[in-house]
């Protein structure tokens, strides 16, 4: 048996196993068996870049359709240092993230209390039921034109749109979180002398946190997609705006930079929310 750093790295990649490993004879159909293939992720990324480079080198497509990877990298450096259309890349990204966060947080701040109200009160439930049932199936993208008519192409219309996109998701998540409680927990709290307020803050709220967090992750994903789409349709700044303009001038390298950044940021948001979830709600899934 060998525990050298090289062995550990190879083991991490899933190429070899280190130490004694219990072997299962049934692997096909066992979800555990498909874990640990990090090496294949590296292979797939390398493969994509090789095909891309090969396509460019053999001129399978013109540079307008498919710029070489080097062009994408240099475009990235250019806008990262010189900026694009009067604003630096960081300003475009910053404005997009600002709209995302403000819209999302507003959606949470208003959606979560409404969801709690709907799960806890007949009046609130009855009042919001028709509104929620009507608004929920409308894709946020369908509201883009209206948001532009009402509020123009600046921050306001984007924030309003993302607020709506997050709102209904958070209402439903918070409501499901409250309704999912085991009644015996509520009963236990009352027999232990808790007041309604204490039951709300010490029992109902923490019990709903896992659902709320799941809702927040979904809402973040939807908001990010909606924001980019809204910036593509009509905006004065932002990462979506940047790639629309670049597209109009056939600056394909820049379009690629934008797409890659959008993907990376979206993934980074989801990963960090999952980390935060694991940190804040260690009991999730263990009940």
């Amino acid at each position: 048996m060998n525990n050298s750093p090289l062995h550990l790295v190879l083991a991490k990649l899933g190429i070899i196993t280190v130490g004694e490993v219990a072997r299962k004879t049934v692997t096909f159909g066992d979800p555990e068996a498909s874990k640990g293939g990090l090496i294949w992720g590296i292979v797939s990324v390398l493969l994509i870049f090789s095909i891309w480079s090969l396509a460019v080198a053999n001129e399978w497509a013109s540079a307008i359709f498919l710029p070489p990877p080097s062009e994408v990298v240099s475009q990235f450096w250019k806008i990262a240092t010189d900026g694009f259309r009067g604003s630096s890349l960081w300003e475009h990204l910053g404005i997009s993230l600002y709209r995302l966060l403000v819209g999302f947080i507003l959606g949470c701040l208003i959606g979560i209390p409404i969801g709690f109200g709907m799960a806890l009160s007949k009046v609130v439930r009855g009042f919001f039921d028709p509104i929620v049932e009507f608004m929920r199936p409308i894709p946020p993208l369908a509201l883009i034109p209206l948001s532009i008519i009402w509020m123009g192409i600046g921050n306001g219309s984007k924030i309003f749109l993302l607020f709506l996109a997050a709102l209904w998701i958070m209402v439903l998540a918070a409501r499901a979180g409250v309704e999912g409680i085991r009644l015996s927990k509520i009963h236990a709290a009352y027999t232990l002398g808790a007041s309604k307020k204490q039951v709300l803050l010490r029992v109902i709220l923490p019990n709903a946190l896992p659902e709320i967090f799941t809702g927040m992750r979904v809402a973040m994903g939807v908001c990010w997609g909606t924001l980019v789409a809204a910036e593509l349709v009509g905006a004065d700044a932002g990462i979506g705006f940047m790639i629309t303009v670049a597209g109009k001038f056939l600056e394909t390298g820049l379009v690629f930079v934008g797409i890659i950044l959008i993907g990376i940021i979206g993934a980074a948001i989801d990963v960090s929310m999952r980390k935060a979830e694991a940190l804040m709600i260690p009991w999730k899934g263990k009940v």
């Binding site: 927990k185 009963h187 232990l192 002398g193 019990n207 946190l209 009991w283």
Partner: peptide
């Protein structure tokens, strides 16, 4: 007429607060 701390209850399972 309602729950009170003078009458405590032990439930079957799942009534502990996981958080």
């Amino acid at each position: 007429t309602g729950p009170s701390p003078e009458r405590g209850m032990v439930f079957q399972q799942g009534a502990l607060f996981e958080w």
